[in-house]
Structure formats: structure tokens, C-alpha cells
């Protein structure tokens, strides 16, 4: 594995090939906010909170740091006017679904997000997919998954599997950034004919 040198927020970084910008940033203690990222899971790139500016070959792009592979001489900026604006609007969009999320609340304070920018429609889910991916990738149970698409997309348990597996596991509960997964689970159980 060859060593790759580049900078994040003007700090020099040594990374190895195949690492993402997010991993490299973490290795030198530069904080980039994330909501759908988990060290044990495959990168997902859905929440887009981790967007950063990268400059390569004289061209500036805005990329998801959890997916973008490191390359030599890359110049990464984790904060800028544009980045802060992107994060602020994304937080405002997610707050409409999960107004009581502690994680979102903290981010809202950092980026000056208006909690009431968009009409509240609490579904409690921001579709980070941590529960779905953890159950599939780590536990290999596939007890819950996504259904539908677009604005109607949601998570859904397979009732039979949930009844068999979930009560003794519950490992995905603490991953949920809106702390609402348990409610969803209980609901699924209540609706289940089992």
C-alpha cells in the first residue's frame, strides 16, 4: 500500500491508498460531522452531511468525504461558506422529520439551522439506514429493510423475522440518530399478526 500525502484544512496528512477522506480526517483529529456513517459498515453516502470541498488538478468539487478516496496532493476543506450552507439546509430538511433528535439539535446549533424552516411532519426517520445495514451486514439477519422510493421511502420490519430475532438483539437501537427506531419496532410488533 503506497502512502498518499495531501492536506485537510491546511494540515498535512499521510494516508494509505483506498482510504476515504473521512477516515484520513479522523486519523489526524479533524472532525467532519456524519449521520449515516458507521466504522463497521460499508460507506453509504446518504445523509450528505459530510460533504467537503476538494481541490484537485486546479478544479474544486464538493464531494461526500465518507466515499471519496484519498489521492496525492488533494486539498481538502471541511468548512466553507458553501459547505456550511449545505449542512444547514440538510439539517433543516431532516428536522422536519425528526424534530426531537439530539444529534440533529446539536448540529443545528453549530450550523445555525432554523428548527422551524420547514413544516414538521415527524416520521422520526431520516433514512440513514444504519439499522437496515447493521442488521444485514453485521448480524446477517435482514430483519428490516427499506420499502418504496422517493418521498414515500421508509424502513419496514419483516414481522416474522422481527418476532424471532429482534427481541434478543436490539443492537441497532442505539445506532439510531433520532432514537426512534425502538418506537418503529414496537409498532411493527403491534401490527404483526404473530
Amino acid at each position: 500500500m503506497s502512502e498518499i500525502l495531501f492536506t485537510i484544512d491546511a494540515k498535512e496528512v499521510k494516508a494509505t491508498e483506498g482510504m476515504t477522506v473521512l477516515e484520513a480526517a479522523k486519523s489526524i483529529g479533524v472532525f467532519i460531522p456524519t449521520l449515516c456513517h458507521h466504522e463497521k459498515l460499508e460507506p453509504y453516502g446518504a445523509c450528505r452531511i459530510c460533504m467537503v470541498e476538494v481541490e484537485t488538478g486546479g478544479r474544486t468539487r464538493i464531494v461526500a468525504s465518507c466515499l471519496y478516496p484519498v489521492e496525492p496532493n488533494l486539498v481538502v476543506r471541511t468548512r466553507s461558506q458553501t459547505i456550511d450552507k449545505i449542512r444547514r439546509v440538510l439539517i433543516e430538511e431532516m428536522l422536519a422529520h425528526a424534530p426531537d433528535s439530539v444529534q440533529l439539535d446539536e448540529l443545528a446549533k453549530e450550523y445555525g439551522a432554523d428548527r422551524d424552516r420547514f413544516e414538521k411532519e415527524p416520521s422520526f426517520c431520516i433514512h440513514c439506514g444504519l439499522c437496515v445495514r447493521y442488521c444485514a451486514e453485521i448480524k446477517k439477519k435482514n430483519a428490516l429493510g427499506f420499502i418504496d422510493r422517493g418521498a414515500r421511502r421508509e424502513i419496514s420490519f419483516i414481522p416474522k423475522l422481527a418476532a424471532e430475532e429482534c427481541w434478543n438483539c436490539k443492537e441497532c437501537f442505539e445506532l439510531c440518530p433520532t432514537s426512534a427506531l425502538q418506537a418503529a419496532y414496537v409498532l411493527a410488533q403491534a401490527l404483526s399478526p404473530v
Binding site: I86, V89, E93, M94, H127, D148, G150, A151
Partner: peptide
């Protein structure tokens, strides 16, 4: 059209289009 046809995975598309 796009609100219906978005895959719904990422926030700026799913939520942005919806708003």
C-alpha cells in the same frame, strides 16, 4: 415527477425535492 421517481436514498434529493 421527480419526487415520485427519486430513489429516496440521499437527503438533498428526497427531502429537497419534497420541499
Amino acid at each position: 415527477f421527480l419526487a415520485d421517481e427519486s430513489c429516496g436514498k440521499c437527503v438533498p434529493c428526497r427531502e429537497g425535492i419534497r420541499q
